[in-house]
Measured scan of single mutants.
Amino acid sequence: TTVHLNGVTYTFPNPEEARKFVEKLAKTLNLKVEVHNGTYHIE
């Protein structure tokens, strides 16, 4: 599972880890999250 954040790409072997990371980040920084083909894009 891949996460794109400010031009940096993070790869998680575990989709659940990626989801938790994204949710925590989005909540902390009040960001918008979009998912395209299983890839998270955070703005």
Rank of each mutant, 00 (worst) to 15 (best):
T1S: 10
T1W: 07
T2H: 15
T2G: 08
V3Q: 00
V3H: 01
V3A: 03
V3R: 00
V3G: 00
V3K: 00
H4P: 01
H4I: 14
H4Y: 13
L5S: 02
L5P: 00
L5N: 01
L5F: 15
N6M: 13
N6I: 09
N6W: 14
G7T: 05
G7L: 05
G7C: 15
G7W: 09
G7S: 07
G7I: 04
G7E: 08
V8F: 12
V8G: 05
V8P: 01
V8C: 15
V8S: 08
T9D: 06
T9C: 15
T9S: 11
T9N: 07
Y10T: 04
Y10G: 02
T11P: 07
T11L: 12
T11F: 11
T11M: 11
F12Q: 00
F12V: 01
F12E: 00
F12R: 00
P13S: 10
N14A: 06
P15Q: 10
P15L: 08
P15S: 10
P15T: 07
E16V: 10
E16R: 07
E17M: 13
E17I: 12
E17F: 09
E17Q: 11
E17Y: 11
A18I: 04
R19N: 05
R19V: 10
K20I: 09
F21R: 00
F21N: 00
F21L: 03
F21W: 13
F21G: 00
V22Q: 01
V22P: 00
V22C: 14
V22H: 01
E23G: 04
E23M: 10
E23Q: 07
E23S: 05
K24T: 11
K24A: 12
K24H: 13
K24Q: 11
L25P: 00
L25W: 07
L25G: 00
L25C: 14
K27V: 05
K27T: 05
K27F: 09
K27W: 05
K27L: 12
T28P: 01
T28Y: 14
L29D: 06
L29K: 08
N30H: 11
N30C: 15
N30R: 06
L31F: 06
L31Y: 06
L31T: 05
K32V: 09
K32A: 04
K32G: 03
V33I: 13
V33Q: 01
E34W: 13
E34T: 14
E34L: 10
V35F: 14
V35R: 02
V35N: 04
H36D: 04
H36F: 07
H36P: 00
H36K: 13
N37K: 03
N37V: 01
N37M: 03
N37L: 04
T39L: 05
T39F: 08
Y40V: 12
Y40T: 05
Y40W: 12
Y40K: 03
H41V: 14
H41I: 14
H41S: 04
H41D: 05
H41K: 03
I42W: 03
I42Q: 02
E43D: 06
E43M: 14
E43S: 13
E43F: 15
E43I: 15
